[in-house]
């Protein structure tokens, strides 16, 4: 598996898309830092960006890579290599190269502006971590969708739809149901519902950093316990880890049963 990972990673690292992705983040971060040399503001702006772009790009990249390497996968399948190693290796290669682009693209400008040693170091590391986790989650989802669908157009469509669902539609439905159910105690429901969506979950981790003052305005005891103590951080991290593991297991399952 690690051999496959290594080759997929180096293959992607040399792809111009990786450079474009990395370059985009670097340009974006540099321009933000240049416009406002206040590190905390830039971290906040990027926190909004990471929730949107990391999942989107990971989804597109994951689907694209899977379809593009279809024949290569067949070549590998004929080799004396375990089936699951091939797919997990390729997936990890994509996720790792995406994460590398993100970390380098955003990390390098911040390093130059001296983030370590500033008060923002913690938030900055959190930002990087969230970007990496989201890349892993959404490239896994993308791989899963691509594995399930031989038709590229359909695969791309479904992947975009999945992203749209997690990024926008899910929250819309949640907000709607919260307002419809506002007569009832919906505290636990809203919390659980948010935790089930990896983007919302990452957003909560960010909220815990940025909007703790507003969040502490909740009357509900469950919210306060979840958000006000380390519990929120621990649970969020744990569920995010589940969100990485779950699609990977699905990839494994589908890969075991698929014909090529």
């Amino acid at each position: 598996m690690f051999k496959i990972l290594k080759y997929s990673f180096f293959d992607l690292i040399r792809s111009r898309w990786t450079y474009i992705y990395c370059g985009f983040y670097m340009l974006f971060t540099f321009s933000l830092l240049w416009l406002s040399s206040d590190l905390s503001k830039v971290v906040i702006s990027l926190m909004n960006v990471v929730l949107l772009l990391c999942p989107l790009i990971a989804t597109m990249f994951g689907v694209m890579y899977y379809y593009n390497s279809r024949e290569f996968t067949e070549l590998l399948l004929a080799q004396p290599v375990k089936r699951t190693s091939i797919f997990l290796g390729q997936y990890l290669g994509v996720a790792a190269s995406l994460s590398a682009s993100w970390v380098i693209g955003v990390g390098f400008p911040f390093l130059i502006y001296g983030v370590f040693g500033s008060a923002q170091a913690g938030n900055f590391l959190m930002l990087l971590l969230i970007g990496v986790v989201l890349s892993f989650v959404f490239s896994a989802i993308a791989f899963f969708i691509a594995l399930k669908n031989e038709n590229r157009i359909k695969g791309f469509g479904l992947a975009i739809l999945a992203w749209l669902f997690f990024a926008v539609i899910y929250d819309g439905i949640l907000l709607l149901s919260l307002s419809l159910l506002s007569e009832y105690p919906v505290e636990k429901f809203s919390l659980i519902a948010s935790v089930l969506n990896p983007i919302d979950l990452s957003r909560i981790l960010i909220l815990l950093k940025l909007d703790i003052s507003a969040l502490m305005g909740f009357t509900g005891a469950v919210f306060r316990k979840f958000l006000g103590t380390g519990l929120g951080m621990v649970v969020s991290m744990a569920v995010l880890a589940v969100w990485v593991v779950l699609p990977v297991l699905s990839i494994r399952r589908v890969a075991m049963r698929k014909d090529f």
């Binding site: 990024a167 926008v168 907000l175 919906v186 909007d211 507003a214 909740f218 509900g220």
Partner: peptide
């Protein structure tokens, strides 16, 4: 919205909002 349904606060900073 939040003043109507305080729990919706959990959606702060989401793209939908």
């Amino acid at each position: 919205v939040v003043s109507q349904t305080p729990e919706s606060m959990i959606l702060l900073r989401s793209l939908f909002v």
